[in-house]
Structure formats: C-alpha cells, structure tokens
C-alpha cells in the first residue's frame, strides 16, 4: 500500500518535471503556493491556538477577509478602486502621449535633443514621488494632483525609451525599404513605427506599476478618495485588518493590470525571439 502510494507520488513528480521542461504553467502548483502562504499566515495568527501578535499588529486571514467584505459592502471599495485606477490610467495615458511625442520630436531635432538630453536625464533620476507635496499645494486634494504625479512619474521613462528607440533604428532596414523604391512614408510606417513601438512597450509595463504607485503615494499625501486615502484613514485608527485588506486589493489590482499588459505585449511583439513565451 505504502509502496503504491510512493510510486504514485514519484509518477506525479515526473509529470510535473516534464511539464516544467516544456514550459507549461502548472496552475495547480501555483494555487498550492498561494494556499501554503495563506496557511502559514493563518498558523502564525492563531490558527494553531498560538497568537504572538495582537490583531492590531498582525491580523489573521479571516479578520482581513471580514474587513474586506465590510469594505466592499459599504460600496466604498468599488469607489476607491475606480478612483485610484482612473487617476493612474489618466496619468499613464497623458505620460504615454507626451513621452512618445517628445521622444520622437527630440530624436529628430538632433541639436535640441542633444541640448536637452542631460537635463531630462537628471529629471528622470529625481525620486519623483518627492514632488507629491508640491503638487498637492498647487493642484489641491482632487484628482488633478494625482494624475499629474502619475504623469510626472512615467513621462520620462517613456520619453527616454522612445528617444533611444528612434535614435537606434537600424539603418540597414531603412536602406532595404528605400532600395525597393519605398519613400519616407513607407520607412516611417514599416521600419520606424514598429521599431519604436517595441521600445515604448518595454517602458509601458514598468510604467503601469509606477503610475499605480505614484497615485497611491499621492493619495497618502492628500486626497478625499482612493485606496491610498482609505489606507491612511485605517492606519490612523489602528484598523490594521483594513490596511491588510487594502494591501491585498492593491496587490490584486496591480498584478491583474501588469499581467494584462504583459499578455498584450507578448502578442504584439510576438515577432521577437526572446518574447515568445
């Protein structure tokens, strides 16, 4: 009996190994990892009748879940999530538009580009959340200050990538299209655009996380809605289960958005050897 059991386990292992070898994702294994993490959390917060830390310091999964359900029932969860996401996406969209336009313009206006490059690189290395208080002073507690903070956080990353992308277009590919009789319109559409797009996409995935982080930080500093604002309120009254619930929401939302972007990117850039996943 035990031998049979052992054999079955061994076979299972081989099957897993084979799946891993061909690069297939094992959903079961992933769920198991999540389940184990929750189990460890539960075990450390009274699940085994032993609770070294009070709920105000480390709430249990059940308490966090209850708080989350309460948050959702009040209707505030949907409101906060949509507010935070709206701000992050407006900032991201604005940053994309400005960053790519600026990148293309400065890459073609070589002299201006050369002149502004160090200044923009310096701005890019500034810890951007540091301007959050300033933006609150200038634009108030409403949506504008958060959108601008997200915008300010991503615009340089996107600009830098676009700029390097345009400047690094492979001249041989341009020549190949010219030799076939293609004009500047063909070169722009078939060579420059796809080339630069691949650079912009590379920036997009990091920019999504950056925009979300910037928005939440902006809400910490000063706001009237949003996940960051709700978190500051909960912290103030030591409602740690609520803080944990919000962290879970942030994690889930962030993961979903970045994963979505990764899939879109993998599809659009499927011609690239390193991205065929």
């Amino acid at each position: 009996m035990a031998a049979v059991e052992l054999k079955r386990v061994a076979l299972g292992k081989v099957r897993w190994a084979r799946r891993a070898a061909v690069g297939q994702t094992n959903v079961g294994l992933r769920l198991l990892a999540v389940g184990l993490s929750v189990a460890v959390w539960e075990a450390g917060t009274g699940g085994l009748g032993w609770r070294p830390l009070p709920p105000a310091l480390l709430p249990s999964p059940g308490e966090t879940w209850q708080s989350l359900v309460g948050y959702a029932r009040s209707g505030l969860l949907a409101l906060d999530v949509s507010r935070t996401l709206t701000q992050a996406f407006l900032g991201l969209a604005l940053g994309m538009a400005t960053g790519t336009a600026l990148g293309v313009a400065l890459a073609y206006a070589r002299r201006l580009g050369d002149a502004l490059e160090p200044l923009l690189a310096a701005l890019n290395s500034l810890p951007r959340v540091a301007v959050a208080p300033l933006l609150i002073i200038w634009f108030g507690l409403g949506i504008t200050s958060k959108v601008l903070l997200a915008f300010f956080t991503v615009v340089f990353v996107i600009f830098m990538n676009t700029y390097s992308g345009v400047r690094s277009v492979d001249p041989d590919l341009v020549r190949a299209v010219q030799v076939m009789g293609g004009g500047s319109r063909h070169v722009a559409r078939w060579v420059v655009l796809p080339w630069v797009a691949s650079w912009v996409f590379a920036a997009l995935r990091t920019s999504i996380s950056l925009a979300l982080a910037a928005t939440v930080t902006g809400e910490f500093v000063g706001s009237t809605h949003g996940l960051g604002y709700r978190m500051v309120l909960a912290t103030g009254v030591l409602d740690t289960p609520r803080v944990f619930a919000i962290l879970l929401v942030l994690m889930t939302v962030g993961y979903a958005v970045v994963e979505g972007a990764r899939r879109v990117e993998a599809y659009l850039l499927r011609w690239r050897p390193e991205l065929t996943m």
């Binding site: 041989d172 590919l173 020549r175 190949a176 299209v177 010219q178 030799v179 076939m180 009789g181 004009g183 078939w190 060579v191 796809p194 691949s198 011609w271 690239r272």
Partner: peptide
C-alpha cells in the same frame, strides 16, 4: 540617390534585412 532608380533596383544584403515584425 536610391530614388533615382525609380524602383528598378534590387539589393540583396549580406546581413539579413528582413523586417523582423513582418
């Protein structure tokens, strides 16, 4: 310039210059 050929020229490069996204 290349445009003086008005499309009557073909050029096969040593380096692969296929457009990778097509």
């Amino acid at each position: 310039t290349a445009s003086d050929w008005v499309g009557e020229l073909g050029y096969v490069f040593q380096r692969d210059t296929l457009l990778p996204w097509f």
